[in-house]
Design a protein around this nucleic acid. Structure first.
Lengths: 242, 242
DNA sequence: AATTGACCAAATACAAGCATCTGGTCATTT
DNA sequence: AAATGACCAGATGCTTGTATTTGGTCAATT
């Protein structure tokens, strides 16, 4: 039985990859993508440079992995927050958790805000990822909620996706620019903006217990799917081919 | 009576200033602030370079004037739109008009978005003006509406300012990044986001005719004041001293 | 009195050559 | 089989010197 030994090796390998990404994250946040060299990352992770190339095809793949890991971590955290929420499930609570999970992660914030200081040339090459969760089947999720009578149908799905995206984008971009006397701490503001989405999209009539359960299930499903896709994308960055 | 002659001279002077700003605007939008030279502006306006310095102290003042004129124009347009609106007065309609008025003006959009391509060094030196209407007494306006029972008081004014600012900021930043299949034209989206603000801030009970009138008056007053301040600021850019 | 545009100092852009750094490889070591 | 780090070519940055551009002025012109 080589089982335990094999698992141990694989585990250590994965651990090392995480360690390397941790170093990369710290360096990028401190000195920016452009100035972060593979040598720096290697030294900080206490591995040789060649070892890094055992994990990723090249520099670009390393940083792609970093960003995708970050996204995965945020989505996982959202799922956790949604699951542990003491308040009844609602689209607004979901949005609040999503906003906070992103907000907690400086690297994700940098991508959402298109921070040139941190992203450097990365900002120019990949202006995507700035629409937040607009991709990844959010429209389909809303569509399902509409079908179940859990979201109004007075606006088109497209419009509703835009509302959610706008509110979230506004949270990320405008909150940091607020003059001190009007600033509201992010943990306070997020639920308020969540409630804003709620009031815009939720039906007038209060939910029945069944509807609540339905909503929770749909949301959990959506998050499971999103986490799954995100995890796959993260894993894919380790592939050496292509 | 030198009246008509004097007025004619002053008028022509003002006209010329506008012409110069028009040229500056066009050039900035086409080639960016950094590359737009006073010579260019002069040539395009068919005046000598020295003439420009008869209007403004220096280059900086010229472009400050340009931005302030733009803001003034937008606010004036909002006042016009609000006044001519066939729908009953509401905070939501107000926000929708505000959003559209800004959206129609590429230079304002550039400042709101912090567009480095267009603003060049200006983006770094003046990161303000990105909070939209957060300044200029918007909080006081909301406060007045709260006092009159025209806006809920379940949240603090600060929170409400943040909601409005976020929704507007989200409109500006996220709409242009939307994938084509989810994109909603700005003229359609603005009222929807206005309604989003409305649902978040308006009281549950419908307004009485008196309340409607009150709301309209408050809004008109606020806009008058904002336009007035903006006009003063614009005028101030022409001063040669300091 | 208003307007012009030649003029100037300072800033900016460009070029060339040189030094350093960095992504990526791979023979060697563990 | 896994990990290393010396090594290399190309990219990046730096320095110095030069050419061009540009903001701003002001004597001459209208």
């Amino acid at each position: 039985m080589t089982r335990s030994k094999t698992r141990g090796t694989r585990e250590r390998r994965a651990e090392r990859a995480e360690r390397i990404l941790d170093s990369a994250a710290e360096l990028v946040l401190r000195i920016g993508y452009d100035k972060t060299t593979i040598d720096d990352v290697a030294r900080r992770s206490a591995v040789a440079k060649g070892t890094i190339y055992l994990h990723w095809r090249n520099r670009e793949a390393l940083f792609t992995a970093l960003l995708r890991r970050e996204r995965l971590a945020a989505l996982t955290r959202v799922r956790e927050l949604v699951g542990a929420d003491s308040a009844p499930a609602s689209l607004g609570r979901f949005c609040a958790h999503l906003a906070l999970a992103y907000h907690e992660r400086p690297l994700l914030m940098a991508t959402v805000l298109g921070d040139h200081e941190i992203l450097g040339r990365l900002a120019r090459s990949e202006p995507a990822g700035r629409t937040g969760p607009a991709g990844s089947g959010f429209a389909e999720y809303l569509e399902a909620l509409r079908g179940a009578g859990l979201v109004r149908t007075d606006w088109t799905v497209g419009a509703q996706v835009n509302v959610v995206t706008s509110v979230l984008a506004g949270f990320f971009t405008s909150a940091p620019l607020m003059p001190a006397e009007l600033a509201v701490p992010a943990p306070d503001l997020a639920p308020i903006l969540g409630e804003t989405v709620e009031r815009a999209l939720a039906p007038a009539a209060p939910f029945t217990p069944d509807q609540r359960a339905d909503l929770a299930r749909h949301t959990a499903d959506f998050l499971d799917r999103a986490v799954d896709i995100s995890a796959r994308k993260y894993s894919a960055t380790f592939e050496q081919t292509a």
